[in-house]
Design a protein around this nucleic acid. Structure first.
Length: 347
DNA sequence: CACGGCCCTGCTCC
DNA sequence: AGGAGCAGGGCCG
């Protein structure tokens, strides 16, 4: 045990010293559900741990920092490791920005409840999911991985990218944590990138990622991301869909979660089913979501829920997800008759 | 322009 | 046991 501690300290202090900062901010728990927000499919870099005393903590990497979060009814306490020196308040501000704590969730939920009956019915108990404000490159590559895929495998793939091309932030409790790779780091391996990804079981997404990295670099990298933030939502989306592997749905996820375009409403299969059942019954016979149908649904949500329609969608999505799990794969919207979950037995 | 077939992998189901 | 079916899409014909 002593030896182990010594090793960890030795490794993490040398050759590069990563500093640990502790901090705390006040925020009511009922306005921030960390499970839904961090583990619900926006980011793929967080894990929750519960010890035998049933104390919960969330660990993850964002903005080149490793974070450990604890939540009390009125506060969030954090530990953060970073390779770069910053004044302590930098981290508090960063965390507030990442979680968009300035957004009045309960106020907006009241508006959304008045805007449509379905919202009022589905979210009686507030699903306090917050839309994260994430880094564009990480969000783009992660959501390219998300197609035809589920959270668990996406997380594995993103983790692979980080440990292969990212840089080590710290070693904590015996685990190494890596930042998401920078654009330049990925470009340095441009020639081998696709084949390396293939080998790492990225499947057909390997080509998309390599191609997108190349194109992002040619477009100006971080300057291009800044430009996309300053453009209107739809202008930004037009630009994004020129990247290989990015269609409307993934582009909308990026706009919403990394480019500050909160009116963006990603229409995935879950949301489409909700739309068919409770918003646009006309679509109930139509299976394939063509670009035209996609836009119709998205515009419909924007019309109802306004400038922050994407956030309203996130809340609806979480409500749907929960029911999805409860019914063991059979998606059942509340407006339909609820099919009882199959009895599971078997060891 | 709408549609179906296909794409990689890994897991679950039967 | 081992093949079908599917998972928070996109591309191509």
């Amino acid at each position: 045990m002593l030896l182990k501690l010594y090793r960890i300290n030795f490794l993490s202090n040398y050759p590069k010293m990563s500093t640990c900062v502790k901090g705390k901010l006040s925020y009511p728990k009922d306005q921030l559900n960390l499970d839904l927000t961090l583990l619900g499919g926006q980011s793929f870099r967080w894990e929750k741990h519960t010890n035998d005393k049933k104390e919960e903590k969330w660990q993850g990497v964002a903005f080149e920092c490793f974070w450990e979060l604890h939540q009390t009814p009125s506060t969030i306490k954090y530990k953060v490791f970073s390779n770069k020196k910053h004044p302590d308040e930098y981290f508090t501000k960063l965390l507030e920005k990442y979680l968009r704590l300035d957004f009045d969730l309960s106020g907006n939920c009241e508006k959304w409840k008045r805007a449509h009956r379905h919202f009022a019915e589905t979210s009686q108990a507030l699903k306090a999911v917050r839309v994260l404000d994430q880094e564009p490159l990480e969000t783009i590559l992660s959501f390219i991985c998300s197609q035809n895929n589920h959270i668990k495998r996406i997380s594995t793939m993103v983790q692979w990218l980080c440990s292969k091309y990212g840089s080590k932030i710290c070693s904590y409790e015996g685990v190494d944590y890596f930042s998401f790779p920078s654009l330049s780091s990925l470009c340095d391996h441009q020639n081998e990138l696709e084949s390396a990804l293939r080998e790492a079981k990225f499947g057909y997404r390997a080509k998309f990622i390599a191609g997108s990295v190349k194109k992002i670099n040619e477009s100006g990298g971080n300057d291009w991301f800044q430009k996309l933030r300053s453009l209107s939502f739809k202008e930004a989306r037009v630009e994004l869909v020129t990247l290989p592997g990015i269609g409307f749905k993934v582009a909308d996820c990026i706009c919403l979660m990394a480019l500050n375009h909160l009116e963006s409403v990603p229409i995935d299969t879950h949301i489409y089913k909700i739309a068919q059942a409770s918003y646009l019954p006309r679509l109930s016979g139509i299976k394939s979501v063509t670009p035209k149908i996609y836009e119709e649904v998205a515009e419909h949500f924007r019309k109802i829920y306004g400038d922050y329609a994407g956030w309203a969608q996130a809340v609806l999505f979480c409500s749907g997800l929960q029911r999805f799990q409860e019914t063991k794969g059979k998606f059942v919207d509340k407006t339909n008759v609820c099919v009882p979950a199959k009895k599971q037995k078997k060891k």
